[in-house]
Every structure is written in C-alpha cells, then in structure tokens.
Nucleic acid binder design. Structure first.
Lengths: 344, 344
DNA sequence: CTGAAAGCGCTAACAT
DNA sequence: ATGTTAGCGCTTTCAG
C-alpha cells in the first residue's frame, strides 16, 4: 500500500508540530483562523484522511456498527439492511456485516470477533438456532462490555438492551379478524416459525382473534412446520382432511406455497379459500391472485433501530444512562385479491 | 467499554515482558515450549483477543474486505453477497459493506473511506451512475494504493484489476437462439440496462443470434428504458404497434412486467408470445406461467470473486505480481413455461 | 531463550 | 496560539 499522507507530513510541510495540525484539523479553538485555513486547505488538496486504526486505538469511537442478520436472501432482512445502511451512512458510520445463517455457532463466532472493540455498537436479529437453544450468553457478555446493542425483529427478553420490533400479536390479530369479517369460519394457520418468539406471538394473535369472535380453535388447523421438506405434505394433508376456508401464513413463503398447493387441489382463491401472508415482499404482488399481506415495513425497522443505536452510542459517552426501550411498530394490512371483500 | 485483557495483563501475570507474551502467542520459535503452553492456556481461558486496531496500526494486514454493491434489494446482488460472505467467513475475513445505491457520488465517497487502509481488498460491482459517467478515477486511485480490487458483474476495461463476470453476450445469444428455435420470428428486446456494459453485451448477443439465423433486426423491437416510469407505456406501445412473438427481458423485472402487460392485452403466453428474462430469482418461478430464465449463478460469482481477492491479498505480500485475469462464467438457460417446446 | 525499546498515527493533557 | 509529551496495544528489531 502506498504510504498515505499523515499528520506528520503536514506538520513537516508547515514547520509546525503534529499536535497543531491535529487540532487544526479538528477545528480546535486553540489554533488561529489563518493557520487552520491553510492546514485544512493543504490537507484537503493532498487528500488527507486520518488513519482509522490509529484513531480508534486512542478513542473508543470508531464509527463502526456491527450488523448480524440471519439470512440476506430473505427479502424482509434485505429491506431492513437497506434501512440500516441508509441511516448509518447519513451519520457517517460504517457497517461490518455478518450473516449468521440461522446458526447459533456462527452467530457466537461473529459476536466474539466484533466484541474486541471492532465496533461501537451492534444491530442484531437473532438466528433461529439461537432462539431455539435459548443460549444468549454471547450477547450478555457483549452487552457487559458496555457496547450498546439494538435487537430488531427477532429479540429476546433475556438480554437487556434496546429493541425494535413489530407488533406481531396485533398483526396476526388483525389479519385473522379480517378473514373472519370477510366470512371465513375455518381458518388455518401455517407457522414455520414456531421456534421463534415472533412465531409464538403471531399464533397468540390468531387464537385471540378467533376467541373474540366466538370461533373455537381447532388443533387440526394449526400447522407448525419444522422442516421445509415437510411443507407440501403437511399443507396438502391440511387441505384434504379438513374443511378450511381461510389461511394465515406466518411468513412470505408459507402463504404463497400454500396458495399454489390449494390451487392445484382445485380451490378457487378467494371464493373457496382466502389467504393472508406475513411479510410484504415482491412475491405477493406478482403471483396471481395477488396476496393480501401483513406489511412489516422492513426498511423502517432498520432505520429506527439504527437511529436508536447511534443515539445510544453517542449518549454512552456522556454517560447519561437512559432506560432500555422497546419500540413496537405497527404492521399494516395490505388488502389484495386473495381475500374476499368486506360485506357490510 | 469494559477494559479487555491485553498483552500487558498477561505479561504482568507471568512476570515476563510484553514482547515475550506477544511472541508466545504468535508461536515464535524464540520462546520455550513450556512457557508458550502456559501463556497460551492463560490467554485462552481469559478469552484474550488481540486488539484489531492496534494490530493493524503495525501490520498492513487487517483481514477485512470492503464490499460495494449497487442495490441489496436486487435478488441477484443478495445472492452474490451471500456467496461473498460465505467465502470471506471461511477464510477469517470480515466484511465492510456499502450500498452505492446506483450513485457515482455515493460510490466515490465509500471508496474514499475505505481507501485509507480500512480494508485490505475491495469487491465491487459498478453503480449505474458510475458506468454512465465513465468516471473511474476513484477506483484507479484506489488501485494505485496497491490494494487489490476484484470487480464482479458490472465491470469496466478502464480499471486494471481482476474481474469475475458472466458471459452476457452468450447468455443473450443462447436465449435468443432458443426463442428462434421454438418458432419466434419477431423478437423484441427490452433493456433497462443500456447505461451498463452488461446491457450492451446482451444486446450484441441478441443481434448476433438474429443475424446468424437470417432474421433482420427491427429497430422498433429494440426498447431501451431509461426511466422506470416509462416502462409500461413503452412496452404497451411495443405490443400494440408491432407484431411481436418473442421477448427477451434483460433483467428480472422487465420480463415479468412485460408478461403482465402482454397478458392484460390478451396475449396468450407462450402461444402468442414467448418470454425469456435474465436473472433467475424467486419471481420467475412463482408467477404463472413460470418464466424461462437465464440463470446468472449469483452466489457462485460472489464465491469466485472472493476467492480471487483473498488469493490476491495473500500473494501481494509475497510480491509475486501475477497478471490480472478475467473469469467469465457461463450462464444457463432454465426452461420453464413462458416459452414453447422445441420442435424437432 | 527472554527483554528493552522504538514506533505505527493519532489524541489530549499539560506546558509554554 | 502553539509545542511537548505520553501513551493507546501491538510487533519487531536488536541486545543480552
């Protein structure tokens, strides 16, 4: 690597001390306006950039945020990531990003690397493996170091930190209520997320909606998928052995794939069967019929989480210990063609 | 941040010097086996991790790769990214990632930040703004620093570095040839990518396929889209004012959206109109009819580019100047329902 | 085999 | 208003 210009070089050029240059560049009031101007001008035209490693060695302020995401091929997380990137960039932060690939081991490994001062804050959505195992020691230890964490979407009560989540309970509650209002009586729920807290919350929202409307829950209509390969068989069985006139899919693919299966079995959508899916990505808008979806506003979640983290990082310095907060974002139901119209 | 254990702490504990500990941990032959074992054991059990900033200040080896991607919401780039992440992780490299958002200004800014020694290598796919402007100074300057660059997918001849691309010409050539073989005579091409080199290559492949099969090119069937808002109007005009029996869409959305428009105009797919699209994401498999696609093997591109970069980084040290290479990956045509069967 | 010392580039007391 | 100095944590000669 070609040697790049340092404070020393500038100091030599002006025949002043290194600290003078440092202060000038940091716009200190100590330095005369004239000198500051000259030094800054010279620095700019010589394309001076402080060495980030040297700076971080001194200050515990490296303007870098660690991001851990379970799976970037998931459109929701890609949306969140784009929100994170936007806000980080606006505030002059870099991102070190890792994909945990839904694995506890990889998540732990990643966190350990970041822990040694590589980042001044962490944004994380828990991997499925982590939630399943219930092992949060790596995160607790990270938080103990005093580096702020903001969890988003997939969070746990067992780690004390700020959180940004969607109202999973209400999202499912509203979706189920919508199905009921449009005339569905036998509503199934398909959950590939039962290892995750968000999956459990959504299930509760579904059950509560049924209850409030006087519909008894039917265990045969509650399908938990733990292995992707079993999806087709389970849904096929659901649709052939039971009377079903509504389906709530807890993530993007469960709704879409269930719809494909139902159509292949001769169901008319939405006349015979209404479908709503969580996550409003590209897919639900492109299939036909277009699928009514619970929108999770992924980009906004990313933006909010990053704002909170940066605020926490910058306040941390001033030692004003603020209480941890959990921001719960509303979902919205985007009504399309896979559900019947409301009948007043 | 809680103070984490340093070489000094270990040295104090064993009453030896810091340099002894450093050497022991680096497995130097200078240190006695016994001492090394004790020190290593102590370090491990106290969870010692070298401070990455301090280390990098000394050595120009930071095991960090910069990644610049035009748009993470694009499924192809998400795939590439997952390939990059996998290989980087396997080799113990961290990723600093940035999204250029198709903007030259943002790309420049990003590169400048990374330039000052933050990363020991760069993976980049050019933003549309950059290709359009033809301004590659930021990349040339980056390369001049001696930090290796590997460009993928969207590359330019004007910067000397390693490249990993797909065979865009042949991908389009084969797709067009397939349309011709299945009986299409009036094949249109829809290109929202004409600002990009890959778009131009694909157009050439299309034209060459027509020529080789004795079909004269028709300028009315060559649609270049420079503003997304105009897409619908242009395609609608294409389909109403001309006889068209085949469409080649140069990226995912152009094929899908064109198909929607054609269907709304009463075209039967593939009987009246055959469609092939570049990029094999989720969408082409989920719409109906499912769309025949040119698969670009995004994850593989990411893996290959990262392998090459790491190899370059590690060889750089040994100063063995190897020639820059361009690896051109084959595309493959995934045949689905939007094209007619081959008639033998 | 082990240690002392210098220095990477920068910041921040503490002089002057 | 400017300079001196010490030191962040680590590696690396060079001496013992």
């Amino acid at each position: 690597m070609k040697r790049s210009i340092t404070l020393k070089d500038i100091a030599l050029h002006f025949n002043v001390s290194i600290s003078t240059v440092s202060k000038a560049l940091n716009d200190s009031h100590d330095i005369s306006i004239a000198l500051k101007a000259k030094i800054k001008e010279y620095a700019r035209s010589n394309n001076y950039r402080p060495n980030p490693y040297a700076r971080n060695l001194r200050k515990k302020d490296n303007r870098t945020i660690g991001v851990v995401i379970p799976n970037i091929l998931n459109y929701f997380f890609a949306q969140v990531f784009s929100g994170i990137e936007k806000v980080a960039n606006e505030n002059g932060y870099n991102l070190i990003s890792c994909i945990s690939n839904e694995s506890l081991a990889k998540e732990k490994n990643t966190i350990e690397i970041l822990e040694r001062g590589l980042v001044s804050g962490l944004l994380i959505s828990l991997s499925e493996g982590t939630e399943k195992s219930g092992d949060y020691e790596h995160l607790k230890s990270f938080a103990d170091n005093g580096i702020p964490i903001v969890m988003f979407d997939r969070v746990t009560d067992l780690v004390a930190c700020d959180k940004v989540i969607i109202d999973d309970f209400n999202g499912a509650f509203e979706a189920t209520t919508h199905l009921i209002r449009t005339g569905c009586k036998n509503i199934a729920i398909i959950s590939p997320l039962d290892n995750l807290n968000i999956g459990k919350q959504r299930l509760k929202g579904y059950l509560t909606a049924l209850e409030k409307n006087g519909l008894p829950p039917n265990p045969n209509l509650i399908i938990k998928i733990f292995e992707e390969e079993l999806f087709e068989a389970e849904v096929r069985a659901l649709l052939t052995r039971n009377r079903v006139d509504g389906i709530l899919g807890l993530e993007e693919f469960s709704a879409i794939n269930a719809m494909k299966i139902a159509m292949s079995l001769g169901y008319e959508i939405p006349e015979d069967l209404s479908i709503i899916g969580f996550t409003n990505g590209q897919l639900p808008q492109y299939v036909s019929p277009r699928i009514t979806s619970v929108s999770q506003h992924g980009k906004f979640i990313g933006e909010q989480a990053t704002h909170k983290l940066i605020q926490r990082i910058e306040n941390n310095k001033e030692d004003s210990m603020e209480e941890f907060s959990t921001q719960k974002l509303k979902t919205s139901l985007v009504i399309r063609e896979s559900t019947k119209p409301l009948n007043f």
